[in-house]
Write a protein that binds this DNA or RNA. Sequence first.
DNA 1: TTTACTGCAAATCCTTTGCAGTCTG
DNA 2: CAGACTGCAAAGGATTTGCAGTAAA
Lengths: 153, 153
Amino acid sequence: MDIGSKSSSRRARAVSPYGAGRTSAQRATIADAAERMSGAFTVEELAEAVRREGGSAGTATVYRAVAAMSQTGHLERVGDRGGKSLYVRCDVRAHHHHLVCTECGSIAETPCPLDDAALSAAGGEGFVVTSHEVTVYGLCRTCSGSSRPAEES
Amino acid sequence: MDIGSKSSSRRARAVSPYGAGRTSAQRATIADAAERMSGAFTVEELAEAVRREGGSAGTATVYRAVAAMSQTGHLERVGDRGGKSLYVRCDVRAHHHHLVCTECGSIAETPCPLDDAALSAAGGEGFVVTSHEVTVYGLCRTCSGSSRPAEES
DNA sequence: TTTACTGCAAATCCTTTGCAGTCTG
DNA sequence: CAGACTGCAAAGGATTTGCAGTAAA
C-alpha cells in the first residue's frame, strides 16, 4: 500500500536476478532465503533465515534488500503482525492474490477472481481502475481440519 | 489486517453511538471530526481536525478513540502514508470495499464485487474462507479528468 | 575507477503505556 | 461510587539513515 506514493511500476530496463542493481553475496543469500520461506515472514525472520543458511547480513542490509525486492515485485507486503511488516515471496510473472490463514498465518496464492468487467463495474462512472488488491482470509486445510471452526471474539 | 490477532467481527451487544463505552466530549468530537473527513486520514490529521472544530484531545486520546472505533467498524485502516496509518470512516451497515485514488488519495466505497461462489472458488479445496478484503486503485473522476490516464499495473 | 552495497550505530518517530485526576452512568 | 476516559510525558520498537569501507562492473 502506501497511498500517495503509489507504485507506478514503470519498468525500463531488465531487472537483475533478484531485483538488485548489483549481485552481492548478501543480496543473493537474502533472495534465496526469501525463496525458501514458507508463508509470510517479517524482515527479522528473514534475517534469521539468512544466518541459518550460513550467510551474514546486518539488519539494515536486509531491510534495504527487502525494499529493493518489493519494488521489483519479488516480494510483497501483506499486512503486519504485531507491528512488524509481513512479506511474502511472489511469482512476478502472474497476476494473483493471497489466501491468508488467520490461524497459522500461512499464505497461499490464488488466481484473481475479478475480471475486467467486474473491475470497471466496481469503479463505476468516472473512476478509472488501474490496479487492485484482493486478500482472502480463512482457515487453511490444516487448520480447518483439526481445530474447531469456532471463532467469536 | 494484523494477521494473527484476527478481527472476528461478531458483535454481541448494541454498540454505543460512536463505538465507545462511554460518551465523553472528546470521543464525540473525534467521531464527529472523523465523520466530516473526506477521504483517508491519519490519526494526526484527525487530531488536527478535532482542534479545528474547537475540541481538544491529546494524541493518546485520539489514538485510543481511533482504536475503539476501528474495533466497532466505524473506522477502517486502509494502508499507510509515509509510515502513518491511514483510516477511513465506514458505513458499518453494509459490506463494502474501497476505491482509492492514487492521485489525490481520496477514497470512495464500492459494493463487494465478489459473490460466495467466487470466494469459495478462490479458496479452493480445503481452505475455508471467512472474510476478504478488496481494494481498487485508480483515478477518481476529478483526477482522471484532468491528468493523463497513463500508468498500467 | 566508479559507485552500489554493507555494517554498525545513532537517530527517527509513529504508537503504546503508566499514572493520577476527572467525569459518565 | 465504580470504572471509563483523559492528558502528559516517558517509554517502546520497527525502520531509516549517515558514513566509511569493500567489492561488483
